[in-house]
Computed example of a mutant assay.
Amino acid sequence: MVEPFTRGNAEILGIYGHSASGNPPKDTFTCDINQVPSMFFDYRCIKTGQLTFGVFIDGVDTGDTGGTKMENIGAVRPFHFWVPQKVRSSGSHTVIVKYGHLETSPDKIVWDGNSIFTLVLTGSKRE
């Protein structure tokens, strides 16, 4: 097990929709099923270094996986993710934001922890 970078750590503050500026992160986000916006979560650096994120909705990997280098303890940044059509149904959905680090031998992401949020989709899906 070889880590190519110094491992960072962050606190996931919550999820929200629409724009990365001016929207407070929350434990729950609600919107109409036919108007799901671009989604974000905010994270706060608690240890400088590299960190990898992944978003899973109802156990489905959204494919929104990415890494970042955190340089300033206390800095807050947004991370964009999308809600795939395959998980868009009316009701309550579990959004898990995983965070971890990259190992090079073998090449893989190791998840160190996660934060759990709720996405509520209301209304009926248009055809």
Rank of each mutant, 00 (worst) to 15 (best):
M1K: 09
M1H: 07
V2Q: 06
P4W: 11
F5T: 06
R7V: 15
N9G: 04
E11H: 08
L13E: 09
G14D: 09
G14K: 08
H18A: 09
S19F: 12
S19K: 15
S19I: 14
A20Y: 11
S21C: 14
N23L: 14
P25Y: 14
K26I: 07
T28M: 11
T28R: 12
T28Q: 12
C31H: 11
D32T: 00
D32P: 05
D32E: 09
I33T: 08
I33W: 08
I33S: 09
N34H: 10
N34R: 09
Q35T: 00
V36E: 02
P37A: 12
S38C: 12
M39V: 14
F40R: 07
F40D: 02
F40V: 13
F40Y: 13
F41M: 02
R44K: 14
R44N: 05
C45Y: 04
C45P: 03
I46C: 10
I46H: 10
T48W: 10
T48L: 08
G49M: 08
G49T: 07
T52I: 08
F53H: 03
F53N: 01
F53G: 01
G54E: 03
G54N: 04
I57T: 02
G59T: 00
V60R: 09
V60S: 04
D61I: 00
D61F: 01
D61L: 01
T62F: 00
T62C: 02
G63Q: 03
D64I: 00
T65K: 00
G66P: 05
K69Q: 10
K69S: 09
K69G: 11
M70D: 05
E71V: 00
E71M: 06
N72W: 08
I73S: 06
I73E: 12
I73W: 08
V76R: 10
R77D: 05
P78S: 08
P78D: 04
P78G: 07
F79C: 01
F79L: 01
V83C: 03
Q85E: 13
R88Y: 03
G91M: 11
G91Y: 15
S92M: 10
S92E: 13
S92K: 13
H93T: 07
H93S: 07
T94M: 03
T94W: 00
V95D: 05
V95A: 06
I96S: 14
I96T: 11
K98T: 02
K98V: 02
Y99E: 05
Y99A: 02
G100W: 01
G100A: 09
H101I: 06
H101Q: 10
E103D: 11
E103N: 06
T104G: 13
S105V: 12
D107I: 12
I109C: 02
V110I: 07
V110M: 05
V110Y: 00
G113N: 08
N114Y: 06
S115D: 10
I116D: 15
I116Q: 15
I116R: 15
F117Y: 04
L119E: 07
L119W: 07
L121G: 07
L121S: 06
S124M: 06
E127K: 09
